[in-house]
């Protein structure tokens, strides 16, 4: 339905997106993953016809959208990364404003606003000024505005940034429901791996402007089928323990967090004894050592050499 073909965008001397190819089928939820600065937002902007690519093409129903994007724009709903609302207006006034610019009026507008307010759970707060809302409520309204004109394709650019877990779950459930009940196609960018794992049928991973992997969740995890991810937990680390782990040549990658170290090693290698011995010699008390099936986070670490939220 929607294709990005060899899409490149250069800003002055920086190539923000390099020869990216993607396709999106009707009714699927596609995740676009990558750390900050990976080129996700630029790719999304080109896909939604807001930024003209330096080269390449965006095709919608087999027609190029570069010069004449109107047919694509009509079916697009956009949830920008920022809160794209008038903060001095109420939720209702915002919905009325954005509904009107899409040509909705009268009873049709009224009905649609009520439906959207129900879906985003803000009906009771509809007459309150947006600037008094919590971050989560603003995010929900931000999504609600994009739903007003019944878009076939919803582009959501990191819609859960900076909100509490409860609001985040609400948003994820809403997106899932929209996809299931209305067969809405969703393009979802995030750097929260668990959101993408929960929502998306297929995933594209971007880093430094390049598309570095794509496929279903399982296909992507297969990239690490020959490896194991071992999680080591402790209350605190000491330098000697970390240094000795780093010196083990069979550890392919290592990520150190406050209370958890994740190492990726070949699947057949038993690392329990070695890790326990080093901990003992380093006088470090471990809380647990677990072998985990590779997650998308591990795949990302494998592909880019850095954590997704770095």
């Amino acid at each position: 339905m929607l294709e990005l073909m060899d899409l490149t965008k250069t800003f002055k001397h920086t190539e923000a997106v390099k020869n990216v190819n993607m396709f999106i089928e009707k009714g699927e939820i596609v995740g676009l993953l990558g750390p900050n600065g990976a080129g996700k937002s630029t790719a999304i902007s080109m896909l939604s016809s807001l930024v003209e690519p330096t080269s390449g093409d965006v095709r919608f129903r087999n027609k190029s959208m570069i010069k004449n994007p109107q047919s694509l724009r009509e079916v697009l709903g956009l949830v920008p990364q920022e809160i794209a609302l008038y903060e001095d207006l109420t939720a209702l006034e915002n919905l009325k404003f954005f509904g009107r610019i899409y040509g909705l009026k009268g009873q049709q507008l009224q009905n649609k606003i009520e439906e959207v307010l129900d879906q985003i759970g803000l009906y009771e707060r509809r007459k309150e000024v947006v600037k008094t809302f919590s971050g989560g409520m603003k995010r929900r309204l931000n999504i609600g505005v994009a739903m007003l004109h019944n878009p076939e394709i919803m582009i959501m650019d990191e819609p859960t940034v900076g909100i509490d877990p409860q609001s985040r779950n609400y948003i994820l459930e809403t997106v899932k429901r929209l996809n299931e009940e209305k067969q809405m196609t969703v393009i979802y960018t995030s750097h929260y791996m668990e959101e993408v794992e929960f929502l998306c049928d297929r995933i594209y991973i971007m880093d430094k402007g390049n598309l570095i992997a794509s496929g279903t969740k399982d296909e992507i995890k297969q990239i690490l089928s020959s490896e194991n991810s071992i999680s080591i937990k402790a209350d605190r680390w000491n330098d000697e323990f970390i240094k000795r782990l780093q010196d083990i040549p069979t550890i392919q990658r290592m990520k150190v967090e406050e209370k958890e170290i994740t190492i990726v090693v070949p699947k057949d290698l038993n690392m329990f004894a070695a890790v326990a011995k080093i901990a003992d010699e380093s006088k470090l008390e471990l809380r647990s050592i677990d072998i985990k099936a590779p997650t998308l986070e591990d795949v990302f670490l494998h592909l880019t050499g850095r954590a997704l939220r770095d």
């Binding site: 939604s48 724009r73 956009l78 920008p80």
Partner: peptide, 16 residues
């Protein structure tokens, strides 16, 4: 501010 926050993007995608 509206351009940075994406309000203008929303309007550009509309028939406006």
């Amino acid at each position: 501010l509206e351009k940075k926050e994406g309000i203008w993007d929303r309007m550009i995608l509309s028939p406006l």
